[in-house]
């Protein structure tokens, strides 16, 4: 597959209040791939993600989504970029006062001119894609954490974005639910050709879903590895990268 960058992060320097977390970072995400951002706690994975979705303002650099810079875009141009992306937050961030169906309907109500029956059908199909068709009328508090994350993915997909950002999809989930979520990600990536950008440190899930990873490190404030995770595990000569992958491998064997 020829490289077709859908996101390019160029010379990004990020952090807050004089505390630089990462300096002069460059990488691209290709269309249709599952891209994983790795790193230990405090390495700035989630911060990087929040820069990529335009929540944080970088100190320097640009983040191009299909060629448009989300850092500088404003007004309608910014909304156009935001409509290309969907985000699942770590906690799900479903609106607690609305049913699952209403949660998924909300972006449709705000951005399209569809009639109520049409919006209901679309929202319901999204929920069916994540296996929650039977829970349309439930409130977020009435379903489990794994279901909440899946519902959050359904909401993120409401407007058929090209890119889905997932912040720690498997955090707080049991291994079985976490595997189911991985399967869902793979299925969506394959059938809908959605580009995924995932922040995680769940090694099992990394090997299953990712096409390419980058690894951040707080000591160098930059990217210390980039590529296929299995190749990195077997061939990287960076001790930190080896430690990250090997320790977990050893734990798995035990």
């Amino acid at each position: 597959m020829p490289a077709d960058p859908i996101i390019s992060v160029e010379h990004l320097t990020a952090g807050y209040e004089g505390n630089v977390l990462m300096r002069d970072i460059n990488f691209t995400v290709n269309r249709g791939e599952v891209f994983v951002i790795l790193g230990g706690s405090g390495s700035g994975k989630s911060t990087l993600l929040k820069h990529m979705i335009g929540l944080y303002q970088p100190i320097a650099g640009s983040i191009l989504i299909e060629g448009d810079d989300i850092v500088t875009a404003e007004g309608a141009a910014r909304r156009a970029i935001l409509n290309k992306i969907g985000v699942m937050y770590q906690s799900g961030a479903l609106f607690g006062s609305m049913t699952l169906l209403e949660n998924v309907r909300l972006p449709l109500e705000e951005y399209t001119a569809l009639d109520a029956a049409a919006m209901d059908l679309i929202a319901r199909m999204k929920l069916q894609l994540v296996g929650l068709d039977a829970f349309c009328g439930h409130m977020p508090a009435e379903i489990s954490g794994g279901m909440q994350k899946r519902a959050a993915i359904a909401r993120a997909m409401a407007l058929d974005p090209m890119i889905l950002f997932l912040d720690e999809p498997s955090a707080g989930l049991d291994p079985i639910t976490s595997v189911e979520l991985d399967q869902l990600i793979l299925r969506l990536a394959k059938s809908l050709r959605i580009t995924f950008v995932i922040v995680t440190h769940e090694l099992a899930s990394i090997y299953t879903v990712s096409d390419r990873v980058i690894m951040l490190d707080k000591r160098t404030k930059g990217i210390i590895a980039e590529g296929d995770p299995k190749v990195l595990r077997d061939t990287s000569d960076n001790p930190w990268v080896r430690q990250f992958f090997r320790r977990e491998v050893a734990a798995e064997a035990a």
Partner: peptide, 19 residues
């Protein structure tokens, strides 16, 4: 068509159960 095949039109006839 692959996208369409993920759904069963007949199943979508059943109305959503509202509380």
């Amino acid at each position: 068509h692959a996208l369409l095949d993920q759904f069963d039109p007949a199943a979508m006839r059943v109305p959503v159960e509202q509380p």
